[in-house]
Design a protein around this nucleic acid. Sequence first.
DNA 1: GCCGTTTTCGGCCCGACTGTTTTCAGTCG
Length: 572
Amino acid sequence: MLVHNSDVAEIFNKVADLLEILDENPFRVRAYRNAARTVGSLSQSVAAMVEQAKDFTELPGIGKDLAGKIEEIVRTGNLSQLQDLEDRIPPQLIRLMKIPGLGPKRVKTLYDRLNITSLEDLKKSAEAGEIKNLKGFGEKTEKAILAELGREKKEERIKLNVAEEVANGVVNYLKRVEGVSEVIVAGSFRRKKETVADLDILATCKKGSKVMDAFVEYGNVGKVVAKGETRATIVLRSGIQMDLRVVPEASYGAALHYFTGSKAHNIAVRTLGVKGGLKINEYGVFKGKKRIAGKREEEVFDHVGLSFIEPELREDQGEIEAAQQGKLPKLITLKDIRGDLHAHTKETDGRHTLEQMVEAARNRGYQYVAITDHSKRLSMTHGFDAKRLAKRNEEIDRLNGKLKGFSVLKSIEVDILEDGSLDLPDSILKELDLTVCSVHSKFNLPMKKQMERIIRAMDNPYFNVFAHPSGRLINERPPYDVDMEELIKAAKERGCAMEVNAHPDRLDLADIHCRLARDTGVKLVISTDAHSVNDYDLMRFGVWQARRGWVEKEDVLNTRSADELKKLLKRK
DNA sequence: GCCGTTTTCGGCCCGACTGTTTTCAGTCG
C-alpha cells in the first residue's frame, strides 16, 4: 500500500489529540502536531524518502523517535502507539473536540463522568440536563452545546475569491466608523492561502471609538460569539467567522505581524526574540518592561535580525533561515506578468469572441495573449478539430497583421487522451506557437496508468505547458492520483513547463508544488484559464499562489517578451 | 518529543474572552 504524507500527518494529529485528552505533557503534544505539519507540507513523499533511506531527523522538529514512527507508518500503514492509545481511550472522543468550546479537558470530563463518547451521547445528556451539573460546566455551556449540535455543519474552508469579497465589505464598513484609522485583514487571508478558515481583522482607532459595537452590528451577522474591549468574534449568516482585534496605533506593526501568522512562523520569530533577550507580543517588542518597537511590522523583523519576510512566505518553511542569510527570494509580482497563456473564446466554451478577448488583453497592458480553445475530444464544448484550428490560425495571422506591439499567440488547450496521445495530429500542433495540454477525462485511473498517460503525452515534442496539473477543484474534486514530484521531474527532463492555473476554484499547481517545480528548475506559466474578458482579472490569485511557492519573476515564462517566450518554449 | 553560542537537562510564545468561579481554568487563535 502507498502511504501519503497526509496519512502520516493524520496519524500524528490523532496521537496529539489523544495525548491531549489524556492530559499528557503539552510540549510532547506540540511535538506531534509540529511533525504532522512538517510532513503534511513536505513536497516530497515520505514513502519515497523511506525507500531512498533519507534521514528524517534532518527535518525541523523530527528527532530519532518521530523519524522511527514515520518509517513505521510508511512500512505498515499504521502506528502501534496510536493503537495502544486507542485501547486506553475511545478515539471517537476526537470528534467531540471539534465542537467549539469543547477542548481536551472538558471532553475527558464528559467521558469520565457521563461516559459520553459520541455526538449522540452528547446530545442525549445535554437534553437530559446532565451536563450543566458537571464541575466546570454550567447552564450556558450546555445550551451552547445543544445549539451547536443542531447547527448545519459547514466545515468547508472558504475559497480566496469569496474571502476577498467578504473582506472588502467588512473593511469598507469598519473604515467608515468614527475614530477608526487602520483596518486590515491579516491571518491566512493576508498570507494568500488558497482557502481560509476565517477572517482575522486588525484595526487601530482613537480612544472612545465605538468600533467594537459597530462590528457586532455589521449587517450580515448571524451570531456574536465573543465581544470584549479589544477582541470580538462574529459568525456571519453565511457561516463565515470573523475576528476583530483592536490595538493602539503604536502597536500596529507588532499586531499585524502577530495576527498575520502563521502560528508556526510566529513561534519561530518569538523564539528568536527570547534568545536575544526580547519579548515579542502583539503590542510590541519589549526589552524588560520597556517597549522598544511595534509601530511598523519591519521593526519586529529588524529586532530579531531578519530582513522583511513577505506574508506569503510566513509558514516556517525555511523563510526564517533564508532571511537570516539574506537569501529570501525576490517574489514575482502582478506587474511582472506580460501576457495570459490560457484563454477561451465563444468558439468553444468561452463567452466572448476572439476579437473581444484580444482587445481586452491589450487594454490591460499585456503584450500578448494565447488563445487556447478546447480540442475536439471535449465535444460538449464544440472543441476544435484540425480543420477549424487551421482556419482559426489564419484568422489570428490576419489579426496580428493589424496589431502593433501586441501578439496573438496561436495555441490550443489540447486534451491528453487516455492512451497518452494528444487529441490533434502533430501536423497541426507544429503550426502553433504553443500548446497547453490537459486532462479532462478518465480522472480515476490508477496512479501507475495516470502517470504513464501523462508522461507519454509529455514525450510528444509539441507538448509545451501542462495545464492545471493535478486536476483538482477546490472543495469539489480531489486531484487525480499522480505523483507530482515525478511529474515535475518528467517535465524537467523533457523541457515542458507547468501551469499555475489562477482560477480560485483550481489554484493548480498547489503552493508546495510551485516551490518544488522552481527548485527542480521547471519553468512555470501563470494563466487565468479565462472564459470571458473579466476572467483576466483572476491573474492575481495565480501570482499569489506562485509567491507562496517562493517563485521569482525569472521562473515564470509569461514574464518574458513574446519573442523570448517563443524561444524558451522550443524544446531541445 | 525536540533541542542546544546559557548544550544532554530543563526549558519549550503569548494573550484575550467566557463561564464558572470567587481568583481562575479552559478554550481559542
